[in-house]
Design a protein around this nucleic acid. Structure first.
Lengths: 127, 127
DNA sequence: AAGCTGGATCGACGTCTGTCAAGGTAGAGC
DNA sequence: GCTCTACCTTGACAGACGTCGATCCAGCTT
């Protein structure tokens, strides 16, 4: 959470500087940054993990809430959570034995804004 | 365009049935459909192609407008355009010698809506 | 018809990705 | 300290993906 997430958060932050996809041509750098985020969303398991975490009560879920849903081993779930975390789409913090994950609404908001023409002004959902 | 696009359009249409990612847990089928679309966006070249097409004058561009931008061969560009086309994100129609591509704003709008909590009601941008 | 040009398809290559089994780390409880 | 549980990391492997050269098709021009 601390050192790693701080460095990782930069990735999702960089998207802020993108005008909507359909207004101005993306630069090479912007496209690489954006693609990394969309690629993180480009897996059924990761999408379900994201929506399970977001819709779980309190907006957070521990890994034990997630593993039972899939026919996948622990390491695989852990791998997907790592991808989402490194993309800046979720955060995780350990409280005692369990690690709780929650989504970063600002990251999703920015991605959403990039896709539609009117999204120039990011509503700046509180971090 | 004709037979192929009609079948393909179904893919992008299926997204319509998704509530926002962060409200309700995605079903297995929904996540597969959605992931296919996000995966199509998960490549820097495809993102730039999309934004180049969308921001080109008239909202359309022929392949000859696109190939010069990248250090990639024709077949590679053609491959990426096919991926975007099969995802339902762009359409292409041949007019004489050239093939013109344009984005499907409705598909991007639906993807955008899935990412944010308020996107339940799709504004239904005209096809 | 023959040749030319824009663009797609095919086949092959190297790399990346998703998955698992095995082993490792952090905290709780005895 | 020892053990148990929850979770992560590593190493390995099959399949998918991005890229290219070669080939093929559609439409224009002569």
């Amino acid at each position: 959470m601390s050192k790693q997430s701080q460095a990782i958060a930069v990735l999702a932050e960089q998207v802020r500087c993108c005008a909507p996809l359909v207004r101005d041509p993306l630069s090479a750098e912007q496209s690489v940054t954006l693609a990394r985020l969309f690629k993180a969303l480009g897996d059924p398991v990761r999408l379900r993990l994201l929506s399970l975490i977001a819709s779980h009560e309190g907006g957070e879920a521990c890994v034990c809430d997630l593993t039972g849903v899939f026919n996948l081993t622990g390491p695989t779930i852990s791998h997907h959570l790592k991808v989402l975390r490194e993309a800046g789409l979720i955060t995780g913090d350990r409280r005692g034995t369990w690690i709780y994950y929650r989504v970063r609404p600002d990251a999703l908001q920015r991605l959403s804004d990039v896709l539609v023409p009117g999204g120039t002004v990011t509503p700046a959902v509180g971090v």
